[in-house]
Design a protein around this nucleic acid. Sequence first.
DNA 1: CAATTTTCATTTGTCAGACATTTAAAAGTC
DNA 2: GACTTTTAAATGTCTGACAAATGAAAATTG
Lengths: 246, 246
Amino acid sequence: MKIDPDSPVDLSAQIARAIRDAIVSGDLRVDERLPSEAELSEQFNVSRSTVREALKRLGAQSLIRTQRGATGGAFVNRLTYPEAYGQQITTATLLISMNAVSFSTACEARYALERACAPMSAERRSADHLATMRAEAHRQAQPGLTDEAFCASDVAFHRALVDAAGNPILSYQLAGAVEAMQPLMNMITFSARSRGRIVGFHADIADALEAQDADETDALLAALARYTDELAQSVFAAREQAKTQH
Amino acid sequence: MKIDPDSPVDLSAQIARAIRDAIVSGDLRVDERLPSEAELSEQFNVSRSTVREALKRLGAQSLIRTQRGATGGAFVNRLTYPEAYGQQITTATLLISMNAVSFSTACEARYALERACAPMSAERRSADHLATMRAEAHRQAQPGLTDEAFCASDVAFHRALVDAAGNPILSYQLAGAVEAMQPLMNMITFSARSRGRIVGFHADIADALEAQDADETDALLAALARYTDELAQSVFAAREQAKTQH
DNA sequence: CAATTTTCATTTGTCAGACATTTAAAAGTC
DNA sequence: GACTTTTAAATGTCTGACAAATGAAAATTG
């Protein structure tokens, strides 16, 4: 762990890097306690504040957790799936919103990834996953649902579909793609008719999964992808026209 | 932006949260300058060190960047694709290494996702992508290549395949899946014979993409997935046997 | 002796004030 | 006008202090 005080890079960034490397390389094991802030500041020959700033950086990436008190300190954190999901979702959401990603691009990516799960989901789907999907489809058919609630239920449906594949790495990867679409989906107002179509797709997908029919599931997802994109395009076009007339 | 000094949550975490929310909600726009540390410490009624720790947290997530000097300060950072790739890769790598994810699970996820790209890659592949893939396949055939170099080239090949789909969101999502596999792949020693098979697959995939044959590409990727997993299983089994004999 | 309470040392969280360094704009100089 | 110097503002770092949490050891009590 070498630190260069004359580097143009902040000391706290260098220290964070050194500790991160130690974690990634396995030098520091999960749940192992790091030296106290005072010890670290002595080791690296910097002030305690600088060490603290480095530790905050690592904490923000869920690489460490800290605990106060006598036996407290900073511990190497086991990155859990929920934590990784969360990071994945915020990153993907920001990436999309800050880079003017088009609806079509995001939609294409999302459904391509979902279709990658379809064969495994069809093979391994449990009764639990099917029940969740049917419950969400039922919720979506309720009248008086706000667009936000409809989209949230849509996300829940698709997450169940992905989770049904029984591969946690896939679920983690897909979490970002599915959830990050929600802000874009929320831009659309769904008519009763379009909601009806989507719910129909969802019911058919649940049926296909129950029948363990991978090809049918894939075809339905492809059709749903096409319909979603067409719907969005027509909504955007209508909005554009209203603007020019106005 | 409300801060509660009596909350069990650290003040710096609360402040980071408040600023992050302002960024995500669009209250703070890209490249907009945040108030100076002194101003923030007055606004939130905390010391400058606490504000600084909050800013370091945000910096670690690439949400802000800081600049020294008269016109310096903290600015809302536009999350670029390379930055997002990097975060995605470290998170995915740590998730796999810290949670004892099996080779089979990671391999299945990776190839399922890659196959999701295949139809688009076949349709849109450019001469550039094909050239990259052929160059990497050629490199992989060179004798005397270390296992690490072989794996690195393998990653480069597959990233070109993914990038050929021409969907940046897909590329971003797949970066994690492909790169995070590398440490696992590095655990395998590739015999000349198995390298030959893999290079053969790569050449065939490049051919199929050039011919814009999506079905053939998909079939080859599926076969490569199967071969990779079998290879890993036999390597692990051999190692296990050697251990018990020893 | 066992259970409870108290004390205490350790560690992180926060604060205040100082100085160093960087940077661009303003002021001065030729 | 072009160049140099000064200056002000901002982040980066350091020092020293106190608050708060927390578990372990010590003291107390029944």
